[in-house]
Design a protein around this nucleic acid. Structure first.
Lengths: 341, 341
DNA sequence: CTGTTAGCGCCTTCAT
DNA sequence: ATGAAGGCGCTAACAG
């Protein structure tokens, strides 16, 4: 059997004798006689008919599609959020088109964002990627709703939803202080990203609030990669003022730190204490269990989806943008030794 | 500024004075005078024009879009493959629409697959999900190309690409035998999934080939979840004929097994040996490093993308389907004790 | 409640 | 090399 051409209203019309308008009304919630509804349903069933969303989009001028812009460097957290967003949007009848910039040649005429816009997405959900910022800003200013997940950028015409990073940093700092640590290090990551600045700020604020100080040589920065986390940790461990505990403020940094600790032959929660980020699974697999700050993945996804839906329905340039901050959860393992008594 | 309506050929026509046909040719590789090319480019630039992919799809009858069908239970491996597929397809000018069945009410008129088909995807890439099988089979038979990743189903009109599971099982079995183990257990997972049957078969074949036997009570089956891996492992550890080594044949089972081992206070690679699956990061984070069978994620993604592209271009019911099997890699840590001497 | 009509933006003959 | 015209499948007035 050759590739069968999809059925159209015309085919249903041929079978039922009804007009195209009536059939359209049937599919769009208009008033149609019960008898005719039955006819259409039967015809559609026999043809395995499905409304052509492209044609519908063209006519309506809106596609019922949202684009997700992925960064080059992504981790499991981002992917889970995307899946969550898709789930919540699908419940609203909105589909998700995914596009990343990975392997993009800078010269390539069409970047990921252009692809999405060309497909007439009704909105864009963007995950961190500094390189997309300019194009994203232009799109946002032209009136298409943009929601950023996990980051925000001053001046960008977009809503953002993410973990309450300042609070998360604070909670971790407090936890560490409560265990009596004095020499405290942090893998703070890339400080050009709002997310990482906020986590660091909350953390340091908790320390100073409790009378602790943290010297600059114990605040390690660098890219958000496993390698960077590894080398930062190695450096801290070899440091003259070696900390008794360290906080890895991102998933990749956490993995890197754990590897460094393992390779150094140090016992987690005994020779060196640590708090990690993001990976619930990791925290249960290490010995002893790693204490981590876990993100509310589904809540973030849900809020992002809802925000996007609202913006699409408003259909006008909003006067202000929201910054939703959702609290995280400290999952306490046994990787932070108590130095009391 | 209100939501600006996107520019169209008409706008370019107004500026350049050229006909719609010429403009279309410009965008579709036809012959256009250099002077006119310049005019169009300038106009497009000033309007930030982008071809409306929906209108184009409608007219052409092909959308340049591939749908990805996600299962309810997914893990990091699946997501990484999807991202890889997107990357390779984008290089071919094909976009990726994602749809999952998570949170789907069975009564819901439109399942994930219908959504994709309604959007006129040119093909479907499906990741395991027994529940979609019927609908998928119907779609495949109606002529739309289907490529399954990580699994295959007898009789389904689809190509498949995945790890060489039999070989993977064999390699792990051989590794274990080489270390002198006699009492060997396996978390074989859901045996209704081809993937898991193949891994088990290859594994057992390696054992018997080397004169080992494995009794049924050491072959644990169950759903592909962390919980199942955990309870299976607990059961094995409590067993009368407790194995000296176990093989977790999937990512989630691996995580579950590690947690069970940790909670039991056993030392990995000393009190109990183990080989896991999939997670390169996990393997580096455990103490000692976990020996795992790693999948060639990018190769799988690339082959899947290429296969899909080929099928779309063929545009006809193929007479036979391919089963691509890509070899994995055993990453050797120190979680398998040597029982020799 | 149903039908007629006129496009949405683009591509594709067919002329010129 | 360019232009004129028709239509992809659907929806939104507007009549009836």
């Amino acid at each position: 059997m050759a590739t069968r051409n999809a059925a159209t209203y015309k085919d249903i019309q041929r079978i039922t004798g009804l007009s195209l308008a009536t059939i359209s009304k049937f599919y769009n919630g208009g008033n149609v006689l019960a008898a005719n509804r039955g006819l259409i349903e039967a015809a559609a069933e026999s043809l395995s008919y499905r409304v052509n969303a492209n044609a519908s989009s063209l006519r309506r001028g809106t596609s019922g599609t949202v684009g997700v812009l992925l960064p080059t460097l992504l981790n499991a957290f981002h992917l889970l959020v995307i899946v969550g967003v898709e789930k919540h949007l699908r419940e609203q009848g909105i589909s998700v088109l995914v596009s990343s910039n990975e392997g993009e040649s800078a010269r390539g005429a069409s970047n990921a964002l252009d692809v999405l816009l060309g497909r007439q997405v009704d909105g864009i959900i963007a995950v961190p990627a500094a390189s997309d910022l300019d194009a994203l800003a232009r799109a946002a200013e032209s009136g298409i709703p943009v929601v950023t997940i996990d980051w925000w950028e001053e001046g960008l015409h977009a809503d953002s939803v993410s973990l309450d990073n300042v609070d998360a940093g604070w909670v971790v700092g407090q936890h560490i202080v409560d265990h009596g640590h004095q020499q405290i290090g942090i893998l703070a990551g890339d400080q050009s990203i709002s997310t990482m600045r906020e986590r660091r700020d909350g953390f340091i604020r908790a320390l100073t609030h409790n009378g602790r100080t943290i010297t600059d040589d114990l605040i390690m920065t660098g890219p958000l990669t496993v390698d960077s986390g590894y080398s930062n940790t190695m450096q801290l461990l070899a440091s003259h003022s070696r900390p008794t505990v360290l906080f890895a403020a991102n998933y990749d940094l956490t993995v890197g730190a754990l590897i460094a600790i393992n390779e150094s032959g140090l016992r987690l929660g005994a020779d060196i204490s640590m708090v990690g980020f993001d990976s619930v699974e990791l925290s249960r697999v290490t010995r002893p269990n790693l204490t981590i700050l876990a993100q509310p993945i589904d809540a973030i996804a849900e809020v992002a989806a809802r925000t996007m839906k609202t913006r699409i329905e408003e259909n006008g340039q909003p006067s202000s943008f929201t910054k939703e901050r959702i609290p995280g959860t400290l999952i306490v393992g046994a990787s932070v030794a108590s130095l009391h008594e």
